[in-house]
Design a protein around this nucleic acid. Structure first.
Length: 631
RNA sequence: GGGCCCAUGGCCUAGCCAGGAUAAGGCAGCGGCCUCCUAAGCCGCGGAUCGCGGGUUCAAAUCCCGCUGGGCCCGCCA
């Protein structure tokens, strides 16, 4: 399938044409590409170049004169109707809309749900990990940000040609949190609780922390539990595994409500008890910069990296003298597994099968190979930038240069409460779990539905409320850039007006109703459509925006940038685009009647509506938000 | 001590990485628009020393240097 798109084609042609007008050697192609910009006002045209300014100094001529020279030599571009010099040297291109619309709308209607996809990364496998919450509590709103980012990212990755995206969740069932939790749970044979299991555990954990902290004897008991967990194959570790499983399944009820899915759960206990970790450690020891000390500790010497040369003790401990592994070692081992640098000795079984198949690692499972990725993305809070980088550098230390380069820490800042931040041990999350947020969102949406559409049947009302509530949450979590902290306020997240998911869903629903009432088949009538009739600014705006969708999606991935903070990604371009498209459609809706127009215009507009509806649908899908047909 | 992130109208954000034309939206406020495809919408009004100070450039919210304020990170912790 050919995924080329009309906007990129146009830009490529403009760049080539401009390049031909400049003496070779003065300027490179990138300069021309970078000179392109979208004019601040559409009366200035659809695309502009500031090339004359760049050239002014080199050619020692005023920009205006250069612009005139370039334009006089510029060859004809099919999709460009006219070229105009504005200001003191901007070259502005005006699109030939009849031609451009025909190409764009035909493309959309031929690709349908695939419009916006690309085959850029075809044949590549990517493993993405999120949100890796401890199996001892419910997700709070901050975990939702992580999971929504990860899930949205997976959807985008799929769209740009990674036909092999493995979404994994890593569960730390050997950690201190669950040991402390077990300390309190084992005090009673049977616990009566109401509500979800993960909520019950979360509250029990808060109690446990209060009991244990500062009490030497109790802390010792917890250490005993930790040791038993690490060893495995005993009653304590079995019981804890059951608790963790039950907890994760409760957490996943929350995930499913948010349209968040995984392909595989990996348990830390399975990594350790399957011998995978041991295998990884053996491989690490082959590295000349990793060695075992007399004390029995295993360390990585990192002084070969310039940035650590100044350190007093330029090494990192991987394994303590008592034989227990540090987090760094566990992370390295897992990352090696992800890249297929160690044999996959894990065993797997299917845990849940709904519209999605969820696998889990399991000692009783069967052999299967899940690992071996070209790219690995870990969705983890920005506060872990340093440990993440250290882990990637360790791969480099071992000679895994390519794997080092292809490791992405998709970082994001935390969600805060207006007065404080989320602290698991203090229970500040109580009242702010993801479930609380979902329930509140759906309830508020339900009130709106009741107000706006009291005559719908109950099932439809419920369905709409859920889609609107969930959509609002997902949208609010990706609309601000990952490097900005989000302060959680009910009224902002659950405001269904303006720049929010329901606005986009509403535009989509409106477009569906027009198509439905028109009783025309857009795929049939497109061959008779006359795009010379596209004349209004509203129609042109729509066509132009629709045409920009594929390159927007692809660029989100292509422009991912690794920095010391973590990987920067413009995932917020997705909601921003969706909002712009919905706005353009709502304006069109107000000003351009479809059904009541004369036949030829009606046909043309039905096609435009279909293309808009399809693009809205596709962008909503990428965001994991349900595209409603009515609301 | 070293490093990273953030700072844009009353509030929330886009634009910054790839410098360009009157800084773009939402919320809140005020005022209009439903005999016409769903008013969860559309149109209009008011409101911004783009944290501060320098520098680079024909051009700086955007790049560089230095500050200030807020957050985060630098353990054989988890």
């Amino acid at each position: 399938m050919n995924f080329s798109d009309t906007w990129s084609n146009l830009k490529t042609k403009v760049v080539e044409a401009l390049l031909e007008c400049v003496t070779p050697g003065i300027i490179v192609k990138t300069d021309v590409i970078n000179s392109l910009e979208e004019p601040p006002d559409k009366s200035f045209g659809d695309l502009a170049s500031t090339l004359p300014f760049t050239l002014a100094k080199k050619l020692k001529k005023p920009p205006l004169k250069i612009a005139q020279e370039i334009v006089s030599e510029l060859k004809k571009i099919d999709q460009v109707k006219k070229i105009k010099i504005l200001g003191n040297g901007y070259i502005n291109f005006f699109i030939d809309y009849p031609k451009y619309s025909k190409e764009t709308l035909n493309l959309v209607l031929s690709l349908l749900e695939k419009y916006g996809n690309a085959n850029f990364f075809e044949g590549k496998k990517v493993i993405i990990e999120y949100p890796a919450v401890n199996p001892s509590k419910p997700w709070h709103i901050g975990h939702a940000r992580n999971a929504i980012l990860g899930d949205t990212m997976s959807r985008i990755l799929n769209a740009v040609g990674f036909n092999n995206v493995l979404r994994i969740d890593y569960i730390n069932d050997l950690g201190l949190q669950i040991a402390q939790l077990y300390f309190i749970l084992k005090q009673k044979e049977k616990w009566n609780y109401t509500g979800k299991y993960d909520h019950f555990l979360g509250k029990a954990y808060v109690k446990a922390v209060k009991q244990i902290e500062g009490n030497k004897q109790k802390e010792e008991e917890v250490r005993e539990i930790l040791k038993l967990m690490e060893e495995g194959d005993n009653e304590t570790s079995e019981k804890i595994k059951k608790i963790a499983f039950k907890c994760v399944r409760a957490q996943y009820e929350t995930a499913y409500r948010l349209n968040i899915f995984h392909d595989l759960i990996v348990w830390e206990s399975d990594i350790v008890h399957s011998g995978l970790f041991k295998k990884a450690l053996e491989r690490m020891l082959e590295c000349e910069h990793i060695e075992r000390l007399e004390s029995g500790a295993i360390i990585a010497k990192i002084d070969i990296f310039d940035e650590f040369k100044e350190m007093k003790e330029p090494y990192k401990v991987l394994v303590r003298p008592d034989g227990t592994a540090t987090y760094l070692a566990a992370d390295i081992a897992f990352q090696m597994w992800k890249f297929g640098k160690i044999e996959d000795v894990l065993r797997y079984r299917i845990l849940e099968q709904n519209e999605n198949t969820l696998w889990t690692t399991s000692q009783e499972g069967k052999e299967k190979k899940f690992n071996g990725a070209d790219y690995v993305i870990n969705v983890i809070g920005a506060e872990q930038a340093f440990p993440q980088r250290l882990m990637y550098l360790s791969l480099k230390l071992m000679g895994f240069e390519k794997e080092y380069k292809n490791s992405y820490h998709l970082a994001y800042e935390h969600v805060w409460l207006p007065e404080t931040k989320f602290r698991g041990r203090e229970g500040t999350w109580i009242g702010y779990t993801t479930d609380d947020m979902i329930n509140e969102a759906i309830e508020r949406a339900r009130l709106e539905v009741e107000k706006k559409n009291p005559n719908l049947d109950l099932d439809t009302k419920i369905q709409i409320s859920e889609a609107v509530g969930i959509g609002a949450i997902r949208y609010s979590m990706i609309k601000s850039a990952p490097e900005k902290k989000i302060t959680f306020r009910w009224d902002e997240v659950l405001d269904f007006n303006g720049d929010a998911a329901p606005y986009i869903q509403y535009a989509h629903a409106r477009s569906c109703r027009i198509l439905e009432k028109s009783k025309l088949d857009p795929l049939e009538i497109i061959k008779d459509a006359n795009f010379e009739l596209i004349k209004t600014e509203n129609e042109k705006d729509l066509v132009l925006l629709i045409s920009k969708f594929p390159s927007l999606v692809l660029n989100i991935i292509k422009r991912m940038k690794q920095t010391p903070w973590g990987t920067k990604i413009d995932i917020n371009l997705l909601p921003a685009y969706a909002y712009k498209l919905a706005t353009a459609f709502n304006q069109f809706y107000t000003n351009c009647p479809v059904l009541s127009s004369e036949e030829e215009i009606k046909i043309m507009r039905v096609i435009l509506v279909k293309a808009t509806q399809q693009t809205l649908n596709n962008v909503l899908n990428l965001m994991g938000i349900t595209a409603l047909e009515r609301m």
